[in-house]
Each structure stands twice: as structure tokens, then as C-alpha cells.
């Protein structure tokens, strides 16, 4: 097990290095200059000389290879650099926002699992009946409707019927649970619905597959109650692909809530990402891409480890 873990962690290094190289150099090809935006934006009248001095101060005049080496050196010591827009450490910019994003992702994951498991199972067990059709309509709608659009509908509904909209600033859960939930439950529901649709579809197809297996027929032949057949034999095996989807969707939510965060005015990682991209704040963008890549690889590893827990046939040693 330890050997497997070490091997997987070591394999993450070239993956992340590849992501770092690609992100760093591709960002430099994108047209745009944060210094011009910062100093010439909204009627700024500074001279070219001032702009050149600022570029030098930010190290943007150095050869790309040197800039990359500087970034790598920083990463090795957990110094992610400073935002070229705000001048704040990147770690601080991320730490302000990561709590909110993680909370929404966790809440959305919980909502999705709570909805998807029963819906997917019922849909599979009552395949091609009106129950299945209803569940399929609900889940396909979840896949078709973008989360941000659902979020907009929610806000419009709240405004129209209750003359109220969710709070616009984040309150940590431990400070005021009610304020926290009244802000975050809506995006979690909007994102969780789509998330649950993806997972429910996967659960449904997995259970349909599993229910055709020999061991299910054997269990039934032995006279095992149908509830146990489904709960103990079918569900446990059908969950494996669903767990992969849950894990990957969770990792996606860390940087993928861009528009939903805009709609609900959430000060999260997705909004930071899109703002940094629009300003060409390379340092923030490349660090966030790397963070998301780390999330994906770690979640993948956790999913693989969970496979072993759920299915004893999978051995890591």
C-alpha cells in the first residue's frame, strides 16, 4: 500500500511539471499587458518610460526561461509570488477565497449524492416505467440546464416572490451559520442539481449493468431479499464508477464555478481566476491552474484508494 502510494505521489510530479510548463508559456502568448492595463486604464496618462520601469520592477523584462526558473524556485519553497495587480502574496489571495469555494463544492457534493443515489437507483430498478421516465427527464434537464442559468432563475424567483436576494458578502459558517447558509445554499443547490444529474445517470447505468451480473442472479437464486440484493451486492459494485464521477466533479468545482460565482457574487476561486485572466495577472493564473491540477490528481488518488475500500478484489500491494 505504502509503495503504491509513493509511486502515485511520485507520478504526480511530472504531471504537475507538465501543467506548469504548458500554463506558463501559453499564458505568455496571450495578447495583453497587465502593466498597461494598470497604469493606462481609465484615463491613466503615464509615459512609456514609467510603464517600462514598472515592467522591470515586476520582472517582466527578464527572459521567459529566467521568469519560469524564478517561479519554480518560489514554488519549491512554497512562495507562490505576488499578484501583479494587487501586489498581495498569491497565497493570501487564494486563502481568502478557498474556504468559500471548498464549502460550496462540499455542499454541492453532498446535495448531489443525496439526490443522485436514490434517484439513480430507483430509475434503474424501475427501468422503462413512468418512474424511470420522470427521473430521466429530471436528470437530463439537470445536464442540459447550466448551473449559472438555474442560479439566475433562483435569484429572479427570490426577488420576484420574496423581494429578497442572498447576502453579497461571505460570513464564515462558524461566525454566523444562518448568514453563511443563506448565502451559500443557493449556489450549492444550483451547482448540486447539475452535479446530481451527472452522478444519477452514472448510478443508473451502473446498476443496470450490475443487475445483469451472475452474482446478482446467484444471490436471487439463493433467496436473498431483493432489498439486500440491491443494497449489498448491486449498489456496492455500481458505486465504483459513480465515485469517480463524484471525485472529478468535486475537483472541477474548485475552479469551475466561474459564472455561478459571478451570478451569486461569491468571492471564490473561480471569480479570482476569471478576473486574473482578464487582467493578464499571470502569477495568479498559473498558480491557480497548478492548484486545480493538484486537486485533480489528489482527488484521483483518493478515488483510487476508495476503490480498494469498496472492492476487495482491487489490491494496491
Amino acid at each position: 500500500m505504502l509503495r503504491y502510494l509513493t509511486k502515485r505521489i511520485l507520478l504526480m510530479i511530472p504531471t504537475l511539471l507538465g501543467v506548469a510548463v504548458l500554463t506558463f508559456f501559453m499564458l505568455r502568448v496571450v495578447p495583453g499587458d497587465i502593466v498597461e492595463l494598470k497604469l493606462r486604464g481609465d484615463g491613466g496618462t503615464v509615459t512609456q518610460e514609467v510603464i517600462d520601469r514598472e515592467r522591470t520592477r515586476l520582472g517582466l523584462d527578464k527572459p521567459l526561461v529566467i521568469q519560469f526558473a524564478d517561479w519554480m524556485k518560489g514554488l519549491a519553497t512554497f512562495d507562490f509570488g505576488t499578484s501583479m495587480w494587487t501586489g498581495r502574496p498569491v497565497a493570501e489571495e487564494i486563502s481568502i477565497r478557498i474556504g468559500l469555494t471548498l464549502q460550496v463544492a462540499v455542499m454541492a457534493a453532498i446535495i448531489s449524492v443525496l439526490i443522485a443515489l436514490p434517484l439513480g437507483t430507483i430509475s434503474a430498478l424501475f427501468r422503462d416505467t413512468w418512474i424511470d421516465y420522470v427521473v430521466r427527464v429530471v436528470t437530463i434537464a439537470g445536464l442540459a440546464v447550466p448551473s449559472f442559468w438555474l442560479g439566475m432563475l433562483m435569484i429572479m424567483g427570490l426577488l420576484t416572490y420574496f423581494h429578497w436576494s442572498p447576502p453579497v458578502t461571505y460570513t464564515p459558517f462558524l461566525t454566523d451559520p444562518l448568514a453563511n447558509m443563506s448565502q451559500l445554499i443557493w449556489p450549492a443547490l444550483a451547482v448540486g442539481y447539475r452535479y446530481s444529474a451527472v452522478v444519477a445517470r452514472m448510478v443508473r447505468s451502473s446498476i443496470i449493468e450490475v443487475m445483469k451480473e451472475d452474482y446478482i442472479r446467484t444471490a436471487r437464486a439463493k433467496g436473498v431479499f431483493e432489498r439486500l440484493v440491491v443494497g449489498r451486492h448491486a449498489m456496492r459494485n455500481a458505486l465504483l464508477p459513480a465515485i469517480t464521477v463524484v471525485g472529478l466533479e468535486f475537483a472541477f468545482l474548485i475552479g469551475g464555478l466561474v459564472v455561478t460565482e459571478q451570478v451569486f457574487n461569491l468571492n471564490g476561486i473561480g471569480r479570482l481566476f476569471v478576473e486574473a485572466v482578464s487582467r493578464n495577472d499571470f502569477i495568479i493564473v498559473q498558480t491557480l491552474v497548478l492548484l486545480i491540477a493538484v486537486m485533480f490528481t489528489v482527488v484521483n488518488l483518493l478515488v483510487d484508494l476508495l476503490y480498494g475500500v469498496l472492492d476487495p478484489r482491487i489490491r494496491f500491494a
Partner: peptide, 18 residues
């Protein structure tokens, strides 16, 4: 308290008295 938000969120926040 000046709250940072996008233009679309502003309309909703003002309409919702936030």
C-alpha cells in the same frame, strides 16, 4: 461598506436591498 461585485450581481443586490 463597499462591496465588490460584477455589474450583473449589482442589479440583483440593489433590487434585493442587499
Amino acid at each position: 461598506r463597499a462591496v465588490t461585485m460584477s455589474s450583473s450581481a449589482m442589479t440583483n443586490a440593489l433590487a434585493g436591498r442587499q
